[in-house]
Design a protein around this nucleic acid. Structure first.
Lengths: 105, 105
DNA sequence: TAAGTACCCTACCCTAAGGTAAGTACTTGT
DNA sequence: ACAAGTACTTACCTTAGGGTAGGGTACTTA
């Protein structure tokens, strides 16, 4: 690995632009291996606004991290799951968590 | 591991508050295993302003990720190195980079 | 009949992260 | 004499990420 110039196109910057948002990893980590409905997700992530959750979910769907399944039911039912690419981030996020625990953040 | 409530004190949030900044990981990755002077660091990280680099370096020193050594010379000479805790982040960052490469970000 | 649930959308606003640019002090090179 | 390199500081300004708050639909339950 010989990345030593951090220009605008380096993979670290590019990746952080996508997963570096305030809520991105939180959402991905909460979905995790399960299938979860919008409402439950919202309750899990304390402090997030509906606007943020919706827009981030849409963003993550567009980028291919999250899969969305809407049911034509009343009341509405929407289920979110991680795609394979999304799941690839889980070990990464777990490492961040482990780091935080180890250093008592 | 049973973290399923993402409240304000969860280790993921806490850690991201520290290493989730726009430049944090870039700086840590650039310092890497070497000893590097301020000027060279600045040249490495394309696009960063002096203000940001200085303030982030100070922040990272305060948090214990980076070690700073000033020489009482003229012209000034300052060397930065990662602490052990800082170095612990390198495999994490490398994973992010690998993720970006794998998915062609 | 009114309130509640579920999954959103939209308009407006605000703050803080970050960008710009200039200045400082001291020395060496031309 | 003047620019250039070194490691910063400071003042000011911009912007976009995110917060607030309200609306909307179609149904169910009290």
């Amino acid at each position: 690995m010989n990345i030593n110039i951090s220009d605008e196109s380096c993979p670290l910057r590019k990746t952080l632009e996508i997963i570096g948002g305030k809520w991105t990893m939180l959402i991905i980590f909460q979905i995790n291996e399960r299938t979860i409905r919008y409402g439950e997700l919202k309750r899990c992530i304390v402090g997030i606004s509906e606007k943020m959750l919706i827009s981030q979910l849409k963003f993550l769907c567009d980028k291919g991290f999250v899969h969305k399944k809407s049911f034509a039911e009343i009341p509405p039912k929407v289920e979110y799951t991680l795609t394979d690419m999304g799941k690839e981030l889980l070990p990464l996020i777990n490492q961040i968590i482990q780091f935080g625990i180890n250093h008592k953040f």
